[in-house]
């Protein structure tokens, strides 16, 4: 039994196996080089890349790996951020509990969107998730102003950690390493999820949903789980963002946040593991450079994105993987 499983896997997944191994090595290399990042680019930019990289990974769990188009990821990030900020602001608890609250916040939004929309097909899910995302934006903005601070957001006092060792989070470098540590752990966790049997089912659903249903899988339940994992990671990213910014701002919940995370992910390459992180990095770097020269950043962004969709759908990391595969892997066959 075990043997037949193994041989099946190598037959089906030969190409995938090569990619998996290559991406794992790339991830380790990235972990090794990440500590030097804040000395190359500015510290806030480096921190932002880690946080949004984690968010993009969580998002791509749906888009790239399960094939679900979500346009409501601002809700997971934003609700995560506000959960963390509010529990610190009103409950005066520490950073760890705040991150836990953020993750739970993301989870609750995922459960809500899942109940309403998980059985809907592509375009429908996109519309419903976008609408629910906007609902959270307006809820935070106006009826719940008294607790959320409305347009001003919630500003937190300086944060620090006592356990397991003292970290002063007002120091930009310490903050970066704290966020990097959590980001790496979360990335490993996601790697584990995607390379489990469950992860393979996700990709199978992306390729042919009807067939997987015919194989006896409860497709809706698997999708729901994928949504929940995505919500957990995105909520955690929201919590980290609050730790980094020292505040929760209403912009996080705006639909543009959902749109931008789609762009980052597509830019990096949706059908890869590590692409979203690279997409987020390149995107944030480009934004910080381009917006120095022009006020019309969105014009360039929109135009570039259209070109990307028309000509370059594999994204940066996806194209690179294809290129390396063609050069080095197929030549050996």
């Amino acid at each position: 039994m075990h043997k037949s499983n193994g041989s099946n896997k190598s037959m089906i997944n030969r190409q995938g196996d090569w990619r998996t191994r290559f991406e794992f090595r790339a991830m380790i290399v990235a972990f090794i080089f990440a500590p030097f990042l804040p000395f190359i680019i500015s510290k806030p930019l480096a921190t932002e890349i880690i946080v949004y990289g984690l968010f993009a990974l969580g998002f791509n769990l749906l888009l790239g790996h399960t094939g679900i188009i979500s346009f409501g990821h601002a809700a997971y990030l934003g609700v995560g951020a506000y959960s963390a900020a509010m529990i610190v602001f009103y409950g005066e608890v520490g950073v760890w509990l705040a991150l836990l609250a953020a993750t739970i916040g993301g989870l609750l939004v995922a459960i809500m969107i899942g109940i309403l929309a998980i059985k809907r097909k592509g375009a429908y899910f996109a519309m419903i998730s976008l609408a629910i995302g906007q609902m959270f934006f307006f809820l935070t903005l106006s009826p719940l102003t008294r607790w959320t601070g409305g347009e001003d957001g919630l500003k937190l006092p300086p944060l620090s950690i006592d356990f397991p060792l003292y970290v002063n989070l007002s120091n930009q470098l310490h903050l970066y390493f704290f966020i990097l540590t959590i980001g790496c752990l979360a990335t490993l966790a996601q790697w584990r999820i995607l390379n489990s049997p469950f992860g393979h089912v996700l990709r199978a659903i992306r390729e042919n949903e009807d067939r997987i249903r015919a194989c006896g899988y409860n497709v809706s339940r698997v999708k729901f789980l994928s949504l929940i994992f995505s919500g957990l990671f995105s909520g955690l990213a929201g919590g980290l963002l609050v730790v980094y910014l020292g505040a929760a701002s209403i912009n996080l919940l705006f639909w543009m946040t959902s749109g931008v995370i789609v762009m980052k992910t597509v830019l990096g390459g949706t059908h890869t593991f590590f692409g979203p992180v690279i997409g987020a990095g390149v995107f944030l770097f480009l934004r910080s450079t381009i917006s120095e020269y022009t006020d019309r950043w969105e014009l360039w962004l929109g135009a570039l994105f259209m070109v990307l969709i028309l000509l370059f759908r594999e994204g940066i990391w996806g194209s690179l993987l294809n290129l390396i595969e063609k050069r080095f892997y197929h030549s050996k066959l």
Binding site: L299, G302, A303, F305, M306, I309, L310, R313
Partner: peptide, 24 residues
């Protein structure tokens, strides 16, 4: 150009257009 690709790409193209045009 995008008919026949995965259905998400036409959607994303329109999305890009909706970012691009207001700035124009």
């Amino acid at each position: 150009r995008l008919y026949g690709t995965e259905p998400i790409y036409p959607l994303l193209l329109c999305f890009g257009f909706s970012i691009f045009m207001p700035d124009v």
